[in-house]
């Protein structure tokens, strides 16, 4: 699916394009189909929310963008990834090194495991600056840049000689963000950046990511399972299920439109409401399908409350209306939604 192309947005420069991406993990025993035909694009300065549950393929998609899939098992089977117009799949190792860190940076969920416990945080930040030292900074200038980056994320630069264990969870995540920001990337991928943090600290970190994004004009992919974070930070949203994008649209489409993919409805039914009291939640029955044995037809059909015969037999097409796309057979007669020819 190609993201929204209204007249206003068509003029925007696309910094990232993912075309029909398939990723598999192959082991001697089985083949796990992690990503099954994902297409989306991201404009400069845009924020895309990638939403889905554990095992939906969100992180695999992100790793594929940076060609960081595990070498032996992870394979990109099909599709293409274009960053600023050039294909990542055809890049040499040297080009990839520049891509990682300089063009794209990533923040991981757990700040403790993504930092090196035996290096001071100052060393860890300066490492990425000196590795991508295209401006030819001297050692002194690099240290100045480290101070600058630390100030940017709200850590006093006097603490740069300390080790990760001396920081709290929220502060560690700020350090991770500082490393990601050090080379001013064009695209930041935040993979569940606040899941390990308390709500008040989460609010601080999210606010900081938003401010940095706006100030530096970065594009942002926010991977999360929290629809609250999506509502508060994202321009566009892609809902992922069993390696596919089942619904794509602007944040307004996802939260306000009359029609949704049944999975999206299920996600909303599952979260307790803050403002009103519902007697009973409406969870999605069953579990995510086994990625080694995906069902025929629509992958969501075994759990779908609206499942019809056609859903079990044939893969659904994408139906779109003003850039709001739903991959579901039952949208055929929905008002204004027409088959999306780009994708079929």
């Amino acid at each position: 699916m190609i993201a929204k192309e209204t007249t206003k947005e068509a003029t925007k420069e696309q910094m990232l394009e993912v075309k029909d991406l398939f990723v598999e993990y192959q082991t001697d025993l089985e083949t796990i189909k992690a990503v099954n035909g994902v297409s989306f694009s991201l404009a400069k300065g845009e924020t895309l929310g990638l939403v889905g549950e554990t095992g939906a393929g969100k992180t695999t998609t992100a790793l594929a963008l940076m060609r960081l899939l595990p070498e032996r098992t992870g394979k990109i089977k099909q599709g293409d990834i274009l960053i600023n117009g050039s294909s990542v799949l055809k890049s040499s190792d040297k080009e990839l090194m520049r891509l990682r860190g300089e063009t794209i940076a990533m923040i991981f969920q757990d700040p403790m495991t993504s930092l090196n416990p035996v290096l001071t945080i100052g060393d860890q930040i300066s490492e990425s600056i000196s590795l991508h030292n295209s401006q030819g900074r001297t050692a002194e200038q690099i240290q100045l840049r480290v101070d600058e980056v630390l100030n940017m994320v709200g850590i006093p630069s006097a603490r740069k000689g300390e080790y990760p264990h001396q920081f709290s969870g929220g502060m560690r995540q700020r350090v991770v963000i500082a490393i990601a920001m050090a080379c001013e990337p064009d695209l930041l991928i935040a993979d569940e950046p606040t899941t390990a943090l308390d709500v008040t600290i989460q609010a601080q970190v999210l606010m900081m990511i938003r401010n940095l994004r706006d100030r530096l004009g970065m594009s942002l992919i926010m991977i999360t399972h929290d629809l609250g974070i999506v509502a508060q930070t994202c321009d566009n949203v892609a809902v992922m299920y069993a390696g596919e994008l089942v619904e794509v649209g602007s944040a307004r489409d996802i939260f306000k439109a009359a029609h949704h993919h049944p999975y999206t409805d299920g996600l909303f039914g599952s979260i307790p409401k803050l403002r009103e009291r519902v007697k009973r939640l409406k969870p999605i029955s069953g579990l995510m399908p086994d990625p080694t044995r995906l069902p025929t037809g629509c992958y969501f059909s075994p759990r779908c409350p609206l499942c019809a015969d056609i859903c079990r037999e044939r893969k659904p097409d994408v139906f779109a209306k003003d850039g709001h796309k739903i991959k579901c057979h039952l949208r055929i007669n929905a008002d204004g939604y027409i088959k999306d020819e780009v994708r079929s």
């Binding site: 502060m171 008040t200 609010a203 606010m207 999506v230």
Partner: peptide
């Protein structure tokens, strides 16, 4: 501080508490 799953609440004022 709770991010609300409601797009209309996007611009609500968040009281961010300082420190930890």
């Amino acid at each position: 501080a709770i991010p609300e799953p409601d797009i209309d609440a996007r611009n609500k004022e968040i009281q961010i508490i300082r420190g930890e």
